[in-house]
């Protein structure tokens, strides 16, 4: 079973099945949990308490995105301002409103910009997940909420990052993780709301040029775990993105905040 799961992740093989059963609100609850960012914003923020949230079980599919642009033509290929999506936007679709015979309707939609992904989620009354939410969800293996220290798990992800993929499989092709969420590794990369938040320079001018965050390669100095290559790669990818960029390996899923409980809002007052 374990071996098979690994194989699925490595080769991204579609096993078909339940993807078509996906409903519009097929989300999973993640957390509450303590998130340990790979690249903490500051030394005081190595452990962040995260409230529970909802996130799509699988990435948004071609079929769902087609329904969206059919309902909102302003997001059809050819209608979108160049400011919001580059020339590659949905360029594998046969036409602005047809997938064509080659694309799998149940495969993740790709070649979508950050603006487009954001608009889709907004149309559902949802939003893109934050980087913290995505990463928290993605640190879960099948058995544990944080599998980052398991070398075998890491290696599986790296193997996928390096593996060729001719066709994207249908969503739901990889095993559910600890939270019941699928395909975070092994199918497509995903947009996050705050993709443009990493590797900024510090505001603290007094630190001047000695501020290590200002320098190329400083990410490695500030990173939490220097052997966590998958996280490095995701951060590098995100920081190279622009909100109008589209690529054939980049899709998205949506998230939603849960209403705050009165108990949760109450502070005990003893926390530092």
């Amino acid at each position: 079973m374990r071996t098979r799961a690994i194989a699925l992740l490595v080769f991204g093989v579609a096993v078909g099945g339940t993807a078509s059963a996906q409903r519009s609100e097929d989300m999973r609850r993640v957390g509450p949990a303590t998130y340990r960012p790979f690249y903490p914003a500051s030394a005081a923020e190595t452990e962040l308490p995260m409230p529970a949230f909802l996130i799509d079980r699988v990435a948004v599919t071609n079929a769902r995105y087609l329904a969206f642009v059919s309902h909102d033509p302003s997001w059809q290929r050819g209608q979108v301002s160049r400011l919001f999506a580059d020339e590659g936007y949905l360029n594998e679709w046969q036409s602005p409103t047809k997938l064509g015979p080659i694309l799998n309707p149940e495969a993740p939609v790709v070649n979508v910009s950050w603006f487009a992904a954001k608009a889709y989620c907004h149309s559902r009354g949802a939003r893109l997940p934050s980087e913290a939410e995505w990463e928290l969800t993605a640190t879960a293996g099948e058995q544990t909420a944080d599998s980052r220290n398991e070398p075998a798990w890491r290696q599986r992800i790296l193997a996928w990052y390096a593996a060729p993929s001719a066709h994207l499989p249908a969503v739901g092709s990889t095993p559910p993780n600890f939270w019941g969420v699928q395909d975070l590794h092994g199918v497509v990369w995903g947009w996050v709301l705050d993709f443009n938040s990493t590797l900024v320079s510090s505001d603290a001018r007094e630190n001047g040029d000695k501020d290590k965050l200002r320098f190329c390669g400083a990410g490695s100095l500030a990173a939490d775990d220097k052997t966590d290559y998958p996280s490095f790669m995701r951060i590098a990818l995100r920081s190279s993105l622009r909100a109008d960029y589209t690529t054939k390996n980049l899709g998205f899923r949506c998230a939603r905040s849960l209403p705050k409980k009165p108990e949760a809002a109450k502070k005990t007052g003893s926390k530092p």
Binding site: A41, E45, N196, S197, V200, S201, D203, L213
Partner: peptide
């Protein structure tokens, strides 16, 4: 413009 909240301040370009 990139920005990120950190320890009460916002790092930004």
């Amino acid at each position: 413009v990139k920005y990120r909240t950190s320890a009460g301040t916002i790092n930004h370009s």
